[in-house]
């Protein structure tokens, strides 16, 4: 294989595998920046994947080519609503946020597989009639050499990268973003300044649900194209790793997600590269997790979480 075609496969599979990770990780950044730990990203992806696949199968005949895109919107809405359970438990009921996140993962998987079995009589849905396809971006994809590599991919990959920049702008350049970050760093001070801590946290968790649902929907409609209990296995936790490896910064999380996406795709296609043939496959599969631990331990730059992350805010308590 010549270098150029190897490079093309790498870039394409990286963009392909990392789009859902980027979106979900951005959701995690919003939630954790507001002070709510979100272990439930995995469950939010499951709900998103489930909603998108069911919607796609049910409405493909009426909506035609627009189906997968409408399905993304539906998955975002349902993911957002589902995340409110986590918000209710961890913000209003002061539940341990980690425990609530674990419960979200259980509930998402249990509920979605339960409904699939009740509706389809099997543990797996049929293939979706209208999956997503590669899109050639006009003009740009006609550029020789780099055109097909960078501008002929799933549109969702570009959407994910654009949303990462929007998320950065919202979090760091708007008053809303400043308020959201302030309730995650020092909720008491924010409360004193007249910011409604509970409302900000609810909004942040809701956004994480929207983005997690979107991530799951993208994953299901581009990669698996059906839904079962094993559609989402660990992608939510890789996204969580990307949040931390990216130091709770939207663009950092995007970079980490791209990198982890690359590691994932290398694990699958790596055997076609001579220099990777001696690396055991499991190291590539486990690379995101190993690197995240190393990053946390301070070997790859210190990763410090938002100060009030994981602590329920109790009004009037100092």
């Amino acid at each position: 294989m010549d270098i150029l075609s190897a490079f093309e496969i790498l870039v394409k599979s990286m963009l392909f595998a990392s789009a859902p990770l980027i979106l979900t990780a951005l959701g995690g950044v919003f939630s954790e920046r507001s002070g709510v730990v979100n272990i439930g990203l995995e469950g939010l992806m499951v709900i998103g994947a489930f909603s998108a696949i069911i919607f796609n199968i049910t409405f493909a005949s009426t909506l035609g080519g627009a189906t997968p895109w409408v399905a993304l919107l539906v998955a975002m809405a349902i993911g957002g609503l589902f995340s409110l359970i986590h918000a209710l438990a961890s913000i209003t009921f002061r539940a341990d946020q980690v425990v609530s996140g674990v419960a979200i993962n259980f509930l998402a998987l249990g509920l979605s597989v339960f409904l699939v079995k009740a509706w389809y009589g099997a543990g797996q849905t049929p293939k979706i009639p209208v999956p997503m396809y590669y899109t050639n971006i006009p003009i740009l994809s006609d550029i020789p050499v780099i055109g097909t590599i960078f501008f002929s991919n799933y549109l969702t990959s570009y959407v994910a990268i654009i949303i990462a920049f929007i998320a950065w702008f919202v979090l760091f350049k708007t008053p809303f973003g400043l308020r959201l970050r302030s309730v995650g760093e020092h909720p008491l001070a924010a409360d004193t300044m007249g910011i409604n801590v509970y409302r900000m946290r609810y909004i942040a968790v809701f956004i994480s649900g929207i983005l997690g649902g979107l991530g799951g929907a993208v994953y299901a409609q581009t990669i698996t194209q059906d839904f079962s209990g094993t559609t989402i296995t660990g992608q939510g936790f890789i996204a969580l790793a990307a949040v931390i490896f990216g130091k709770w910064h939207p663009l950092g999380a995007m970079g980490a997600a791209l990198f982890f996406g690359l590691a994932q795709s290398l694990a699958i296609i790596g055997s076609s590269f001579a220099f990777l043939q001696d690396v055991p496959n499991w190291i590539l599969l486990a690379a995101p997790y190993i690197l995240t631990i190393l990053a946390l331990a301070g070997f790859i730059g210190r990763a410090d979480s938002p100060k009030a992350n994981g602590i329920p805010y109790i009004k009037g308590k100092r």
């Binding site: 438990a89 009921f93 609530s100 979200i104 509930l107 998987l109 509920l111 597989v113």
Partner: peptide
């Protein structure tokens, strides 16, 4: 699974 998830929610809350 649903029942277990809900039990966790209730205990946690």
């Amino acid at each position: 699974e649903i029942v277990i998830a809900l039990i966790i929610f209730f205990v946690a809350s």
